[in-house]
Nucleic acid binder design. Sequence first.
DNA 1: ACTCATTATTAACCACTGGTCAACAAGGAG
DNA 2: CTCCTTGTTGACCAGTGGTTAATAATGAGT
Lengths: 192, 192
Amino acid sequence: MSPRKPSTKDLTKEMIINEAHKQFITKDFQQISMRSIAKELGCSHGAIYYHFKNKAEIFYAILSDYFSELNNTLDENMNGPDDHNTKLLNVFVGYMAFGLNNQSQYELMFIIRDSEIDGLSQEAANHSYEKFAQSVQSLSKAELLISDIHSTFIALHGFVAHYRHYVKNYEEAKEAVDVHAKFLIKALTLRE
Amino acid sequence: MSPRKPSTKDLTKEMIINEAHKQFITKDFQQISMRSIAKELGCSHGAIYYHFKNKAEIFYAILSDYFSELNNTLDENMNGPDDHNTKLLNVFVGYMAFGLNNQSQYELMFIIRDSEIDGLSQEAANHSYEKFAQSVQSLSKAELLISDIHSTFIALHGFVAHYRHYVKNYEEAKEAVDVHAKFLIKALTLRE
DNA sequence: ACTCATTATTAACCACTGGTCAACAAGGAG
DNA sequence: CTCCTTGTTGACCAGTGGTTAATAATGAGT
């Protein structure tokens, strides 16, 4: 009933994902081709389609790890020893740092509009936002407006979307990140 | 010395731009091909390369009109009869409305990273931002921090970049636009 | 051992893309 | 009637994502 066990040198999903991921560090979704992955793997590009139905599916598998990483970063900041205000700053800075340090990935997670990718990662993106919103609320003394939290998230997203044109990583935008985060904290916490 | 006058039915830059522009209303940069433009124009796609050195150059020519439109919208809001606070709201709403009503264009103006396009439109984008920053400052009673204005701009950009995943035009996001604009005004005008 | 069903892989193929270029048509100037 | 220039064509290139018939490889059942 299972006429062939996956022998040692057979192609596996894992190998494909690893290779795609490797290229994904320095190139973005559009720059990576099925053929470039196959070439590096020493197989024909058609073989990949036996394991994944299309290019988007490979990258979605990779993205789910990055969504986890983003969520973990948030958790770590929340579980840290700092006071509420520091934590809030760290959450904001952490989000922007993640986006700037994983630009190709962030692009696919939140920026690109691709019929294939969009549907797949939309759910994960919403989940990440929910976590973010809950964390921000729990760090605030007073009850915040949902719309204010939403606006704050959008502003963080805007920072990443904008600065990726100008910097290669978080380090290069450190000061600007800090300034933006503090602006948002002021906006969020000031009573009118 | 001018051995051939551009006879009536010859291809012109204008015709090419018009056709590209026409398709640009419903499709984005990536979805429009040199061949689809040529087909509609009844010529071979090679002919277009006589008038434009590449695809990016055609779309950059189109974008410059949209940068003007964005700048004009700003001017109109500034020259209106309203009081400063209303003007500030209109400037913010106007920016987001422009982005949501011209999504394919906004994408190319501010979002896409393309080696060809990027270099060309970066200057125009900076100029638009300068106008924005000056306007916002002039509408404010007190002296604003440059960084606050910058953060505000980034937050507006973030709104467009985010909502284009969910709505087709400004109308569909009207309420959210208003809420976001008011959040930013609060953030910008509150003294600490 | 031999068959048989299943899994995995290849390579040719499809319809596209942006871009180049030799050949050629059309027309004005001398 | 040449010559020179402006435009245009269509074949071509190298590349893309995706499909598919043929085939190699393997384990199970007899």
